[in-house]
Design a protein around this nucleic acid. Structure first.
Lengths: 193, 193, 193, 193
DNA sequence: GATGAATGAGGCTTCATTCAT
DNA sequence: TATGAATGAAGCCTCATTCAT
């Protein structure tokens, strides 16, 4: 993989940004190169093809970029905790906070996810399951199958974010409080402080 | 809404059926009129346009039909219970059972949902919230905000089904057991028999 | 391979015809769907894609059709002879006569040949070599390697046709007389009447 | 025609060389500026446009250069003979030898020939016809029309080279022996030593 | 001279939809 | 009703070429 010039990186970022806006605003189906080029102020769709080998590469790049930003944001919160239960709590808090701060990125993520070529979601799942296993070994959680519980918790996270993405009026504070309680009960966490 | 002849209804059903198969087999993006017509044994895509005002109407009809079949299936289970907690338990059991019995319909549903014009999901949500409120009034559940909890439970349901839809090897029995326990804990149900 | 309706066959023939004209008039590089559609009086290039799976299929079909017409024409001449040398003579005569009668088809053939996916030229070669072998067994020709001589004779044929294709002023009658003599000498044919 | 600096000549030669490689390796259709630049180690296709007025000029230059190299090679052989028949023999020998020694140049030539704007082939033809006329005057050949025979002999040459270009397994030694015999018979050369 | 980013025309293809039969 | 041919818009992509640095 050859290096990319700074100019090129800037253009790619600009295009990815325009793609994110478009995805968030119009949905995946209506996100054509024409729309993206217009929103980015480019003179032709050819420029997009010039910087990305194909539509798939752009889509994948959008996904990677949002996911990375998202992961950075979330991990920033989680590092501060030292128990598994604490990390879990931080995980959900961070997710909702990201939603508040970067709504359109979140919506774009939801739109683009089904069309990504290689999803790193297996990673999400594995990390969550590992966290749960660690917590169980430490006696922080009740007895459950870690992989299955990981599915549940990620389902909760995804569902709540999806709801928030489509219903801007949702009360995220209430959601957050209830979510933490619910997760604590579901995992049998003695203490999630 | 004018009446539809029996022949027309049959044709529409045939087309909707082929659309479901196609959605389940190829995904939304690859589900063109051409594919649907081929799978339905029709000799022209024109016939689809003849019976449906546009692609949107077909998509909506697919959604309505699968949702109705799904709802019928699920409600059949729930009628047999008389406590809210019991109904909740039946709800999740029924959902997973439907997944086992009508996998392709479920997958089609997941594919088509993002493209439906008017989702009846508000209905899903309302019903779930009502059930939860009733249960709370009866003292079956712990204290929570019913609307928020409804979001959580539907998120769980959707996430598990989505997972099952994309990973055919998922152990649904294990999932079911864990899910019932988890839901009971999350809602504080004293008894979910 | 499903059957084709008569209408479809007509349209395909029309498109192939327009493609041949365009190839003969503008050369391969300038033969776009747009040009073909214009020459065929079609309202859009989409119609070409409707009748042919892709450009390659059209190109192949043009080739097949011209080659078949060409082969029919040539074989019509050759059937009348009973010696190998006579057939050879008829072959060259027929080739030049076809050039005179269907110039643009010949030119189109030259243009399209390098872009055909599966050339049946192996067939040409084999038939020619078989003819030469038969003639040698019958003692009509001198000693030579049949496969190599086949290459030579087909090279002669192709070269003369190519020359005639690009130079409309070429004296084909003179060419024909000289060619027959030359081939007779080259193959050591005792008699090519 | 203004003078070209030595640097410029070097660059042009480099580009032409890369174009030849590309033509031989990928065929004309796939020979874009991008490919040529990549193979030449240039970092921009703009440089090609800078040194050549347009694609046509590059194509023509490739043709000119290969043809010159080819002509030099062939003429080197022919100078050593003093009879017309001897020169003819040397001509064919040299052609096949060039094919063996510079296969990719030969293939590139075949690829590029149809797209050259002003072919110098008239020159080839004239030279061959002159040689034949000289030979006839000297009584070395039988009676024939020199221009027509020139067409035949060049057709033979082109056809054999084309065959060799597309079929790497062709036995060139056998080809050469048969070709010399055949040409001798065709031209009625008493002696082609 | 060289770079690499930008341009804009043009290519093929797919699609939902319309229309005559 | 049903057919299948026709339509035209829109999509992505490639290409030679231009331009500022």
């Amino acid at each position: 993989m050859r290096a990319r010039s700074v100019t090129e990186q800037a253009r790619r970022a600009q295009i990815v940004g325009a793609a994110i806006e478009t995805l968030a605003g119009l949905g995946y189906a209506a996100t054509s190169f024409k729309q993206i080029a217009a929103r980015a102020g480019l003179s032709s769709t050819g420029l997009i093809s010039y910087h990305f080998k194909g539509k798939q590469e752009l889509v994948d790049e959008v996904y990677r970029q949002v996911v990375r930003q998202f992961a950075d944001f979330v991990l920033g919160f989680m590092d501060q905790s030292d128990t598994a239960a604490g990390e879990l709590r931080a995980f959900f808090t961070a997710n909702l906070r990201f939603m508040r701060a970067h709504r359109s990125h979140m919506v774009a993520l939801m739109q683009v996810r089904p069309h990504v070529s290689t999803r790193g979601e297996a990673g999400d799942h594995r990390k969550m399951a590992d966290l749960l296993r660690a917590g169980r070994r430490a006696g922080e959680f009740r007895e459950f199958d870690a992989d299955t519980m990981a599915i549940f918790l990620l389902a909760l996270r995804n569902g709540v974010l999806a709801k928030a993405a489509e219903d801007a009026a949702l009360d995220l504070d209430l959601c957050e409080r209830e979510l933490l309680t619910t997760v604590a009960l579901a995992t049998g966490a003695h203490d999630m402080t």
